[in-house]
Design a binder for these strands. Structure first.
Lengths: 149, 149
DNA sequence: TAGTCTGTTCGGAACGGTCCGAACAGACTA
DNA sequence: TAGTCTGTTCGGACCGTTCCGAACAGACTA
């Protein structure tokens, strides 16, 4: 119940629900508990029992998503990967984008629906609520930054 | 760009990313713009071009998730479905649960990892940040309720 | 009771996403 | 230049999910 393997497996599950692939999620799990700050692709393949091609696309996903960054030590031959400084800040900002996207979806609905009062009221409620969250959530992030640093 | 069909299709896409099936998402789209407050299963099948078996499982998902509720008009023979009063409140609360789940994932990591300072610092940061969001987000919902009603 | 209507459950088909091994491209070494 | 190492891309296989049509179960009507 407290082994690193189990944690990595859980992380794979959790991050998969965020839209990542299972492998990408497990990579994040490894990087979270790794005593070193970084890992390299062959090591990750070995540790997770995954082909290097799959690892390549998983790491590409993570890099494009800004969750992981790639670097190469001086005089090194292979890339290393580590979590970006504010992985979690980024994850939260992605959530925020989701809020504004839903507000826009409501706008689309308002543009499409006629002038039925109930429909409009529903969609306006949706727009206002997601808009409110989209505005307030970043403030929460700022508050966290202030209280922490 | 402003037709109801397109809106329903968009809604299907958007809610699919929240973990619903495509069909369930489109059902929500229909219920959002429907001038009446409700729809019945045969009508939804007709409108979305979907088999009634698929509709049955989609509506079951939505009902179990608390997004849609089922009722039967007096002397009626068939069930009707409508969005629950605070669909969006529920959606936000689900997000909140996600936050606390990630805080717990961090706890699991802390229990599994040794005493490597960097690993612990990362995981404690994760735990604290998601914990903070899990505590503060409900307040945001309360604030919204107060300002609105 | 037989017939009709509503909704659920089941087995199989279809689809999208992920994975693997192999081929490939570029950088470095000898 | 030939050989080695690292990382990417490609085609095919696999897996889980969602869908459909059909069979089923329950409530109501005549």
């Amino acid at each position: 119940m407290a082994s690193v393997e189990e944690f990595v497996e859980s992380a794979g599950l959790y991050f998969e629900r965020l839209g990542l692939s299972r492998t990408a999620g497990r990579v994040i799990g490894v990087l979270l508990v790794d005593p070193d700050d970084s890992a390299d692709a062959p090591g990750l393949c070995e540790q997770l029992g995954v082909a290097k091609s799959s690892m390549s696309v998983a790491l590409g996903q993570l890099e494009r998503g800004g969750l992981v960054e790639r670097f190469r030590p001086p005089r090194g031959r292979r890339d290393h990967y580590r979590l970006t400084e504010d992985v979690f800040g980024r994850a939260f900002r992605a959530k925020m984008a989701e809020f504004t996207a839903f507000a826009q979806l409501a706008e689309q609905g308002l543009a499409a629906v006629g002038d039925h009062p109930k429909s409009r009221a529903r969609l306006e409620h949706m727009r206002d609520m997601y808009g409110f969250m989209g505005r307030e959530f970043p403030k929460l992030l700022d508050q966290w930054d202030r209280e922490r640093h």
